[in-house]
């Protein structure tokens, strides 16, 4: 479970996240949509305990992220925006470092390492320094790191950014495979991705939660039946006329 209660983050007079509340249950793959600067990453940073909310609270797996940060962080896997990792380390030493911090030991450790290396197809680059890898590989190393301890909750900030179409497909398949008993929250600009992997979508803009529904129901809100149009209508506040749709298409 992720329970988010009246979450607010302000920087001076700027409200980055404005009173957002929602809960996510196991089995849900939540797509977090919004224009750039909408507050998606800020919300994810508060869920994972990197940023402290100005007010409101986040509970993950029953643990309050502010008062029981270690327990909450232990049950989460997080891919930060841009998939940062220690460039001078090799893929193997980096994943082993994460395994150590996550407290994985013995047989489980070996099994989990083998599993993520196989799932994200990292076997060929294990001994390479991460900074020498392509963008796609770096992203997969970031995903591997997030999946390593087989967490109950996965928070992925733009997991497919910088991947080629084949790799995007692989990552979506991967998310689909894992979604049965987990909670997965992904943020993305790519609306087709929401259709492909998410069974719930939340649209935020200007720090406010504007829509929360299944992708199918959201799409029905527009006469054209396209998620793109609904997204633009909701985030810009203007109706999308058929002419514009035609021009866009």
């Amino acid at each position: 479970m992720i329970e988010i209660n009246h979450l607010t983050k302000s920087y001076g007079s700027l409200l980055a996240v404005n009173d957002i509340s929602f809960t996510v249950k196991p089995g849900e793959v939540l797509g977090f949509l919004g224009p750039n600067g909408a507050g998606k990453s800020t919300t994810m940073k508060m869920i994972t305990g990197f940023l402290t909310p100005t007010s409101g609270s986040v509970r993950v797996c029953g643990y309050d992220v502010e008062s029981q940060p270690l327990l909450a962080k232990s049950c989460m896997g997080y891919l930060p925006e841009g998939a940062p990792s220690y460039g001078e380390m090799t893929v193997r030493t980096f994943l082993e470092f994460i395994a150590n911090v996550r407290g994985l030991k013995g047989e489980t450790r070996k099994r989990r390492l083998d599993d993520v290396i196989q799932r994200l197809q990292l076997a060929t680059v294990l001994e390479q320094a991460i900074e020498t890898l392509s963008k796609g590989f770096k992203r997969r190393v970031g995903l591997a790191q997030a999946l390593l301890h087989d967490p109950q909750v996965l928070i992925l900030d733009e997991p497919t950014d910088g991947l080629d179409p084949n790799q995007k497909h692989q990552v979506r398949t991967l998310i689909g495979e894992m979604s049965k008993d987990k909670i997965i929250v992904i943020s993305t600009h790519i609306l087709e991705e929401v259709d492909a992997v998410c069974n719930r979508a939340i649209i935020i803009a200007g720090g406010r939660l504007l829509a929360d529904d299944t992708p199918q129901n959201l799409a029905k809100r527009s006469p054209s039946g396209r998620l793109d149009d609904v997204f633009r209508e909701i985030t810009t506040g203007k109706p999308v006329t058929p002419e514009k749709v035609a021009a866009h298409a």
Binding site: L71, E81, P84
Partner: peptide
């Protein structure tokens, strides 16, 4: 600079 602070601070370490 590299953003790894976000990785480090969201791992279960104090």
């Amino acid at each position: 600079k590299s953003g790894t602070i976000e990785l480090l601070m969201t791992l279960p370490v104090t």
